[in-house]
Amino acid sequence: MTHLQKPPALKPGDTVALVSPSSGLAGEVDIEHRVTTAIQRLEQDFQLKVKVMPHALKGLDYVQKHPQKRAEDLNNAFADPTVKAIIAFIGGDDSIRVTEYLKPDIIKNNPKIFMGYSDATSLHLFLYQHGIASFYGPAILTDFAENVSMDDYTTHWIRRTLFDDAPLGNIPTSPYYHRFGLLWHERTHHTPRPTIYNHGYEVINGHGTATGQQLGGCIEVLDRLRNSTVFPDAETFKDKILFLENSEAPLSVPLLAAFIEFLGTSQILKNVNGIIIGKPQNGEHYEAYKRTWQAMLEDLNLHDLPVFYNASFGHNEPKCIIPYGATASLDASNKTFTIHDNACE
């Protein structure tokens, strides 16, 4: 069993640091209204103080060219005793460049919440490698800046996961999802995004109950990282619950098939106890992805491996939070996803 150091839970009055470890989008002028909205909600709805780290709002060009400055913001946020949580503004595509400048000793000696999704997978795996729990969950420009108001499902799981030290328990899917594509113009910021009915989990493979610690991330990022220093070896996946989801750009079916083949040939799929897969953005290729998983698991002779589909995390709004290393169960008979551990202490 992998032991990860858990951070203290948040409480009203705590300070949260905002960082741009992947993309400098938050620093662009036409995004300023979303930054303002998200900060107001952190302060008013969650009663938190906000500290924007020095390089987080320097724009796309600067942030892309200065991975060491992104790392400096992260190192300083972990070292700052007043900061209790760190949240990414948005994903991107190269946070792996930040990891070589991170200081593990500072991070390990100052455990605190780090949360983000998508390209933040690189940072989560770095933290996992160094024994630090982290949180695959909401980002500032997406969830905290949601048009009109934050979603109740998202805020519920933020409070239950980050502000509480009790076991998380049963996590159902969100009753609805937002269709991706309403542009982030200021003129549409007060226009609610349409909601679409969402159904519960689908069990697309296997049977019984699978239990294990959670490990995973965004498929496209994991695929890029497979030969990197942060990608876990096959043995690390032993007895884990693998969580996977794809980004907002529809993943081609051949690329998904190639990724599943990699998981199979590298023995990762034989090592895990179960898999939970996030709903594709907008439900795009929903049936094609499902059939691809089913066919390839059949070819790999993994008929008994429990696989859940249509989960509400990652590139979905609303979303829950997946704590790395927390013990979870997939009960195929009852179609329930349960996290048995507390995420924070």
Rank of each mutant, 00 (worst) to 15 (best):
E235C: 04
G212N: 02
T211F: 05
E220K: 05
E235F: 09
L225S: 02
N227R: 09
R226A: 00
L225M: 05
C218V: 07
T209Y: 10
E220I: 06
R226Q: 13
G212Y: 01
A210F: 08
H207N: 14
T209G: 07
D223L: 01
G212E: 01
E220L: 04
G208E: 15
G208A: 15
V221K: 00
R224P: 00
Q214K: 07
D223H: 12
R226C: 01
V221Q: 03
S228L: 10
L215R: 04
V221D: 01
Q213H: 14
A234N: 13
G217E: 03
V221E: 02
T209Q: 08
D233S: 12
T209N: 14
I219K: 03
R224Q: 12
G212A: 06
G208K: 10
T229L: 13
D223T: 06
F231Y: 14
E220V: 01
T209P: 11
E235P: 01
N227F: 11
N227V: 11
A234P: 02
P232W: 07
T211E: 07
G216E: 00
N227K: 10
P232R: 08
G217V: 01
P232D: 05
D233V: 07
R226I: 05
H207E: 14
G217F: 00
P232A: 10
G216F: 01
T209A: 14
G208I: 13
R226H: 06
E220N: 08
R224G: 13
C218T: 06
P232N: 04
Q213D: 08
V230H: 08
Q214S: 09
C218Q: 08
G206H: 06
N227S: 12
G217D: 03
I219F: 03
V221L: 00
R224F: 04
Q213R: 07
T209F: 07
R226T: 07
E235T: 08
G216L: 01
L225V: 08
A210T: 09
R224N: 15
P232Q: 10
R226V: 08
R224Y: 11
F231D: 04
A210Q: 13
L222V: 03
L215D: 06
G217S: 04
H207Q: 11
A210E: 12
Q213E: 13
G208M: 15
G208L: 10
I219A: 01
V221A: 04
A234I: 08
T211P: 08
L222A: 03
H207P: 03
D223W: 07
V230K: 07
V230P: 03
N227D: 09
A234C: 13
V221S: 01
E220T: 06
L225I: 03
H207V: 14
A210S: 13
T229M: 02
G206E: 12
A234V: 14
L222S: 00
E220D: 10
G208D: 10
H207D: 10
T211R: 09
D233M: 02
S228P: 08
D233I: 13
D233L: 12
L222T: 02
C218F: 02
D233Y: 10
H207W: 02
A234S: 15
C218P: 00
G212K: 00
F231R: 03
G206S: 12
P232K: 11
C218A: 07
L215H: 06
Q213V: 06
